[in-house]
């Protein structure tokens, strides 16, 4: 007799059940039942944001090199377990070729963003030649906790394409997974849990977008939103409106994440603040000292 997997939430590096004790049936593309997923609640969001906030400081304080290696480690773990993911996708009704392509893209994307971790700063920072005796420079900083409405069209590549550029820049995320196809995302969390990604950096909830998105969008301790477009655009507009209360930076993503061009530095920098620092420059010998 086959042992069936229980799919739970991923919060703070743990796999808890929803505090609500609810679940919903997830079916394959062909309509066959696959598993029960957690039907997360508003309280699960509250818990997830809390741990994401707590995890943010230490994650942002890690060196960029360290974050790079951790994301690269995800690629290694995914590579090692790609068979499992391909199987999972094919059970969910995707053709082998499609499933294979999706997972390979996911691995590529991990490698791609791992490489960005310690480079985008150099490209968007600046030393600004102000017209006074001050050293003035602008550098990026993570925004904090980012709420993510994952792509609802793809099981995994959208999810990965959204969260990696956000976390590589030092943010932590609370993600609402693809509602209809949440299983791969939860399985991916098993990769995260074994890839040195600290608990709380990525938190994933499954359930009803209609129920959860307003709570996430209105949460006053969430700094930004990444919203993949969904069929239900009014729901997205509602989220945008709720996000205004604490001026969350909100990005709407309309990309087809399977495309090679659904990646880039701007996916990282969209979730960075620019901080400009000034400091006086002492004038030595009237500036005529050298040479």
């Amino acid at each position: 007799m086959e042992i069936l997997k229980t799919y739970k939430l991923y919060i703070g590096g743990q796999f808890p059940r929803t505090e609500s004790g609810r679940s919903y049936l997830v079916s394959s593309l062909a309509g066959e039942p696959l598993a029960n997923a957690c039907l997360a609640s508003r309280k699960d969001i509250r818990n997830a944001v809390q741990v994401a906030r707590k995890a943010h400081g230490a994650w942002a304080a890690k060196t960029a090199l360290n974050r790079s290696q951790i994301i690269y480690r995800i690629a290694e773990m995914l590579e090692a377990r790609k068979g499992q993911f391909i199987d999972e996708l094919s059970e969910a009704g995707f053709g082998m070729e499609e499933a294979n392509a999706e997972i390979l893209s996911c691995i590529d994307r991990c490698v791609y963003y791992a490489g960005w971790a310690d480079k985008f700063q150099a490209l968007i920072s600046s030393v600004n030649p102000v017209a006074s005796s001050h050293f003035n420079f602008s550098t990026p900083e993570p925004m904090g906790v980012v709420g993510v409405l994952a792509c609802q069209n793809t099981p995994l590549i959208g999810f990965i394409s959204q969260i990696l550029p956000i976390i590589i820049g030092g943010n932590t995320v609370v993600v609402l997974a693809n509602s209809k196809m949440p299983l791969s995302a939860i399985s991916f969390c098993e990769v995260l849990a074994t890839s040195d990604v600290p608990g709380g950096v990525v938190n994933v909830l499954t359930g009803s977008i209609d129920e959860l998105l307003p709570t996430l969008a209105s949460h006053m301790d969430v700094n930004a939103l990444s919203l993949a477009t969904v069929s239900n655009m009014p729901k997205v507009f509602e989220a945008q409106e709720l996000a205004i209360e604490n001026l969350k930076r909100t990005q709407l993503l309309v990309h087809d994440f399977k495309n090679q061009d659904a990646q880039g530095m701007e996916f990282i920098t969209d979730f960075q603040e620019i901080k400009t620092t000034w400091h006086p420059i002492e004038q030595i010998a009237g500036g005529a000292g050298a040479y």
Partner: peptide, 8 residues
């Protein structure tokens, strides 16, 4: 003493 501040 911050020289630039003093100059200002």
């Amino acid at each position: 003493i911050d020289q630039i501040g003093a100059l200002e």
